[in-house]
Design a protein around this nucleic acid. Sequence first.
DNA 1: CTGTAAATGATAATCATTACCATTGTAAGG
DNA 2: CCTTACAATGGTAATGATTATCATTTACAG
Lengths: 158, 158
Amino acid sequence: MGRGHCGQDIWWHGKLRGCGYRITASREAILEAFMRSADRHLSAEDIYISVHNANPGIGLTTVYRTLEILVDMGMVFKLDFGDGRARYELATAAGQANHHHHLVCTRCKRIIDYTDFIDDEVELLKRTEKGLSEKYKFDITNHLIQFYGVCDTCKTAK
Amino acid sequence: MGRGHCGQDIWWHGKLRGCGYRITASREAILEAFMRSADRHLSAEDIYISVHNANPGIGLTTVYRTLEILVDMGMVFKLDFGDGRARYELATAAGQANHHHHLVCTRCKRIIDYTDFIDDEVELLKRTEKGLSEKYKFDITNHLIQFYGVCDTCKTAK
DNA sequence: CTGTAAATGATAATCATTACCATTGTAAGG
DNA sequence: CCTTACAATGGTAATGATTATCATTTACAG
Ligand SMILES: [Mn+2]
Ligand SMILES: [Mn+2]
Ligand SMILES: [Zn+2]
Ligand SMILES: [Zn+2]
C-alpha cells in the first residue's frame, strides 16, 4: 500500500499497481485534480488546466492517456452530455456514499446530480443487475442512469 | 395528417408539421432508413449510406441536420457507446412495445438491447420520475439506462 | 546503482461534426 | 394552377476533440 510524504496511505496506489501501472507524478496530479473538484463534470481540458497550476510540465496527451486507464480500471466514469466533449467524474459504485445519477436539461444542458433515490431504486437495480448478468452471462460492473427533460428555468423562460 | 401515395396515413408528417418543419424527400428517406433497420444503432454515416441506395442526392450534411431536429423533437434518441461516433435509434417511450435499455460490454463494445425486467423498471422509473420532476421542477421526457460489464465471450476469451 | 520497459510531451494526423453560402424545393396564398 | 418567401439542401471548407508517432525521460525490479 502506498504512503504519502506524511505517512498516510494513498488509496489509489494499490489499484494502479494491481493493474500493472506505475505511480507517477502526472497520475497523482490528475487524481488530485479530480478530488479537488469532486462535484464537477470535468473535461480533459478542464483537468489539463487544473493540473497546470501545480505542475506545468504535464501535457494534454498524458491527461488523455491517464483518463483512459482510469476509466478502464473503473476508477473514473466517462460521461457524454452531448456538448461535444467527454466529461469525467470519480466513479462511485451503487451503495457508496456519493453515488448519484443525472438529470439533464435538453434545452440549456444543465446537469443535476441527484442522490434522492427512492429506497426501492437501489434494490431494484440490484435485482435487475442480477437478472441481466444471469441471463446474458455479463459481469456487470457499473450503470449509467440519466433522465432528460426541461429544467425549471428553461420552462419559465418560455 | 399526411397520406402516402397509396392513401395510408404517414405518422410522422403531423409531428414535423406541428413543429413547423416541412415534409421533404430527404426526411422521408431518413425516417425510412430508420424503420428499415429498427434493430440497429445507426451512425450518421450508416444512415447516409443506407439512404444513398434509393436517393443518391442526399448529402451527409442533411443527414446530420435531420438527425438533429428528429432528436430535438424526441422522435429519435441519440446514444453514445464510446466508439467515437454518435448512434441513433427510433425513440420509444417507456411502456411502448419495443422500449428497451442497453447492456454494454466495455471490452468488445457489443451492445445488447434488453427488454427483460422492463416492467419492474418502468414501474419504479415512473415513481422516480415523479419524485424528481416535483423536487427539481423538471419536465422529464425521456431516460437513458445502460449497464456496463464484460460479456460472456470476452470473459471466457480472458 | 543499473538496465529496461513504461511513461511522457511536443507535434502531426485523424476524423466526426459544423459552418458557410449559393442554389433548390416546399407550401401558403392568390 | 402560378407566385413568392423563405426553409431546406449539398458541396466544400473549417473546427476541434481525440489519437498516433517518436525521441526522450522516468519508475522501479533486481
Ligand atoms: Mn455527476
Ligand atoms: Mn437500442
Ligand atoms: Zn435548462
Ligand atoms: Zn465483450
